[in-house]
Simulated assay, not measured.
Amino acid sequence: MPTLRSGRQLVAAVRAVLLATVVLGLVYPLVMVGLAQLIAPSRADGSLVTRDGSTVGSSLVGQAFTSEAGDALPQYFQSRPSASDYDGAASGGSNLGPNSSDLVGAITERREQVAAFNDVTPDQVPADAVTASASGLDPGISPAYAELQVARVAEARGASPSDVTALVDGATHGRDLGFIGAPYVNVLELNLALDERYGTAG
């Protein structure tokens, strides 16, 4: 009798595992994908941004605007640093704490580089210009960091700072639902607007 009861319990357990696998591993994901495609198809597909038939990035993922040698291009607004080099497969931060000498050194070096690149003093450089987001994929920068870059981009583009500022305003997004997070400027959106208006040569 105990053996029979144990056999029934084993069968019931296997059935429960199989049912949970089908429902949670197959049915539920497919339903969620279907709902996502119905409610927000663009976001479900990765919020890809295309120009002239080619995918140039995602509005949800940051990217670098550098030359082939890795130098920041002066005619483009620069994203915040990324501990993963904007690689979605390696998303994450540096895991260095505020007492890390490596982190302090990196921030100091970045601050000096950003200040020199934008012809400002180091104390004018905002925090997001020298620190990576937790994911390393943040697509936006603070309005303060965008404002810091306006003069440099305007000069490189042969444009007036006021015209570039207007483009910054157009790429600025407010808080989600009016109270979540902070306002940000989508860098890819802004740089594409620059190219559309002034051309890609800069």
Rank of each mutant, 00 (worst) to 15 (best):
V187C: 08
E68N: 14
G7P: 00
T108G: 15
T131C: 01
A201W: 05
G7E: 03
A182D: 12
A36P: 13
S47G: 14
V153A: 08
G88M: 11
R5H: 06
A36Q: 13
V31H: 08
V61C: 13
Y28T: 08
D102C: 00
P161K: 06
R197H: 01
A12D: 03
L96E: 05
Y76H: 13
D169R: 07
I180P: 02
T3H: 00
D138R: 01
A106T: 13
Q75A: 14
A44V: 14
G158T: 01
S100P: 03
R51G: 05
L60P: 01
R51Q: 13
L48M: 15
S162G: 01
S133R: 02
A13T: 11
A156D: 09
G53Y: 07
L18H: 06
T131V: 11
S58C: 06
V187L: 10
V153Q: 09
A13V: 09
D163G: 01
A20Q: 03
A134T: 10
T3D: 02
E68F: 12
P81D: 04
S47D: 15
S162E: 15
G181W: 07
A64Q: 14
G170L: 01
S133T: 04
A44W: 12
R80D: 11
S6A: 14
A127N: 08
S135G: 04
S82L: 12
G97Q: 06
A201H: 10
S160G: 14
A156I: 02
P2G: 05
L38N: 07
V185F: 07
N191K: 11
R5G: 00
A44G: 15
Q9W: 04
A159Y: 07
A171R: 02
R152K: 08
G97N: 11
A44H: 14
P183E: 01
P143L: 10
G93V: 09
V31G: 07
T121K: 14
T121W: 08
L4F: 02
L148P: 04
S58K: 13
L26G: 03
V23H: 09
N118K: 11
T21D: 02
P126D: 12
M32L: 15
G88N: 09
V168E: 01
G174A: 11
A115T: 05
F77P: 00
N95W: 00
L18V: 09
L30I: 05
A144P: 01
S58N: 07
V23I: 15
Q78P: 09
D195A: 06
G178V: 03
T131G: 00
D195K: 02
E189I: 06
A201Q: 13
P139D: 10
Q149I: 07
S42T: 15
A106G: 02
R8W: 03
G174R: 07
T165R: 14
S67E: 08
S135H: 02
Y184R: 12
R157Y: 06
G105N: 10
P126T: 12
T121Y: 06
